[in-house]
Design a protein around this nucleic acid. Structure first.
Length: 320
DNA sequence: CGCATTTGACCCCG
DNA sequence: CGGGGTCAAATGCG
């Protein structure tokens, strides 16, 4: 286990270094690729450590989905982002990966956050409360135990900081609350399709004190409805622009305000989504689910002083 | 008319 | 006991 942890820590370190050098390496795609490759290899070593320790099913989720389909998507979008960039096959061969059949798109992966615990789903959200009937009590709320919470920071759309950013899902507001220590109220949303599909995805949107043009969005639960207004093949979270807190100068130029990628969130959401797709209800993959998420977060969010953003590097060519 | 938002009250947890 | 999360009636809007 020590060895596995060492690999993870090393991978985090490499990711941190990569992050620090991103502005420079952006002009050198092959260096970027090498750095990514090394990080992947390091985490792969960690994965192999887990393979030897945990159930045989769990690593399959990681190795297939992460190394295959998700890199496929990542590279597909990198190609979109980076005109004249490497072909996907080149990238795959450079990474030493077999690569999936090109031309197909992974349809999964639109869930925004990790899986909400079944207990939570069955518990707090449906239970109504009638003041006239004190015998009816709401089931216990879950608060601190919010497994599957994921927070990102999203800038307000250019031109109007009053408008909250759209993440591609349809949300229905169900509450607003003044929060202590915050000059802006917090809004509570749940998936519009909750009633139809039992989709238990929720989010909280909080405008930041220190930067009113930035919203902190906390996603809770996962979308089971898979409904999004975004084009097929582009994860909804990718439509949002994430910020490096306190580093406004690393932001993308304002010409393309809403088309950059928060890769950490994207990885998280994609891996989570595919995990949902293939997990048939057994709990064997749970640990790995968290592992995958944590690794992604570690690589792109937790390392260093803040979240990482790739929009400082690449710009999407909007509408071709 | 149906759906979304607003808003005050309720309830749980720390 | 207070803050945060949720409910649901009232209201708004297309």
């Amino acid at each position: 286990m020590d060895n596995t942890l060492h690999h993870i820590l090393h991978g985090c370190k490499l990711a941190g270094e990569l992050r620090a050098n991103l502005p420079n390496m952006a002009r050198e795609p092959h260096l970027l690729l090498d750095a990514c490759k090394e990080i992947v290899n390091t985490f792969n070593k960690a994965i192999h450590g887990f393979i030897s320790q945990s159930s045989p099913q769990a690593p399959m989720i990681f190795s297939e989905d992460f190394s295959g389909a998700h890199l496929d998507l990542a590279m597909r979008d990198m190609d979109l982002l980076h005109e004249g960039g490497h072909s996907q096959k080149d990238l795959y061969s450079a990474l030493g990966l077999p690569g999936p059949s090109f031309g197909t798109t992974t349809a999964s992966g639109y869930a925004t956050t990790q899986t909400m615990e079944a207990e939570t789903i069955a518990g707090s959200s449906i239970t109504g409360r009638r003041p006239s009937d004190p015998s009816i009590k709401r089931l216990k709320q879950k608060r601190k135990d919010d497994v599957g919470m994921h927070t990102i920071r999203v800038p307000a759309p250019a031109g109007n900081t009053e408008v909250q950013p759209d993440d591609g899902f349809t949300w229905r507001k169900y509450g607003q609350k003044d929060i202590l220590g915050s000059s802006f109220p917090r809004s509570y949303y749940r998936c519009t399709h909750k009633s139809f599909y039992g989709c238990n995805a929720k989010k909280k949107v909080q405008r930041l004190n220190e930067d009113p043009s930035t919203y902190e969005v906390t996603y809770i639960g996962s979308h089971s409805c898979k409904t999004t207004t975004m084009p097929v093949g582009i994860p909804a979270v990718m439509q949002m622009e994430a910020l490096v807190p306190g580093k406004a100068d690393t932001r993308a130029p304002p010409s393309n305000p809403s088309t950059s990628i928060h890769l950490g969130s994207w990885l998280t959401s994609n891996m989570e989504g595919s995990q949902m797709g293939m997990n048939t209800g057994e709990h064997a993959g749970e640990d790995v689910d968290f592992l995958v998420t944590d690794l992604a977060d570690a690589m792109f969010n937790s390392v260093g002083s803040g979240s990482s953003t790739i929009d400082a590097i690449f710009q999407i060519n909007q509408e071709k």
